[in-house]
Design a protein around this nucleic acid. Sequence first.
DNA 1: CCCTCTGTTCAC
DNA 2: GTGAACAGAGG
Length: 334
Amino acid sequence: MAMHLASMVHGSARDREGQYQTQHSQLQHANYYQPQPPQPKRQYSTPTSAPQHSQAQPHTLDYQYQRHPQSPPSPPVEDQKPSLPSISSLLHIADADKATSESGNQSPRSQQSSPQPQPQTHHQENLSQSFRSTGSPSAASNHSASGSYYLGQPLNSMEPHSQRQHAPIAQGVKRDTMPPQSMSPYNPPTYVQSPYSASPGASSVTSYYSPEPQSYPNLGMYSQRPLPSNFQPQTMPLPLPSPSANGSNPWQHHHYISASSQSAFPQSQDRYICSTCNKAFSRPSSLRIHSHSHTGEKPYKCPQPGCGKAFSVRSNMKRHERGCHASSGATMTA
DNA sequence: CCCTCTGTTCAC
DNA sequence: GTGAACAGAGG
């Protein structure tokens, strides 16, 4: 797959000008599709789902979608983990004044490299990541091991259509307690690099697609649970506990579900839960697409010149083309 | 086995 | 006409 992506990335973007269907390539090309650049006005806003983004796509939430639930992008904070204070600084400190207790905070330079507002952020990050990982504190330190997405975005926008047909699980769980701030582990401040290809792991991981102009809200937004839809979410130690404070990890004792138990449940069940609306999906990709409804992301733009419409779902865009530009465009190769 | 992509279908 | 979810196909 990786190679596949890679190949796509290579010769795609321009190859299919008419198809603009290389999301993969998008990650490399900031302008994924926009055959026609001039589209100053917003086509429309989605009143239903994304109240806030009406103003602009650049959302507050970043969504770095990593394709591997189990190997999320190593957050920059981790990457650029506060390196130990340089010896010189230490010396300096010891020498001059320890009172400053520089050691207490991040090394000065680490801050510059990773604009981490406060250590807390890091904490919460781990927290949000870990709590669903498996409850294993160790997982917290390296959430990459866990396979969990979490869709936790500031928007409280509940699903407009409210769980269309199934709202199996999580319904009972109240995430509202989740403060937006704590929700986005990887906040924009964390990445200052280009919004595109924001995925920190882009370098190493085949961070395939990051079409949106704004970096992905990231996995922080999603939660993948190894649990069946019928499994009660009560185990979810979500919000409140501020374990980091006292060191006693709440997750520690709360066991999710044993492997054996897991096997008991069909894995095909909805395992990916949108933390925003608690809707469950059986596929990560579905969840990702779904997330667009919350974020208002519309990565797929109608290639037809003059038509600035954008869609969050590719097939919808295609359909739009067929329907609206069938006669005019016919750019569709297929 | 898991994932993404695409087309289809439903609901508004 | 469009948003959104599902299911099948393909990798």
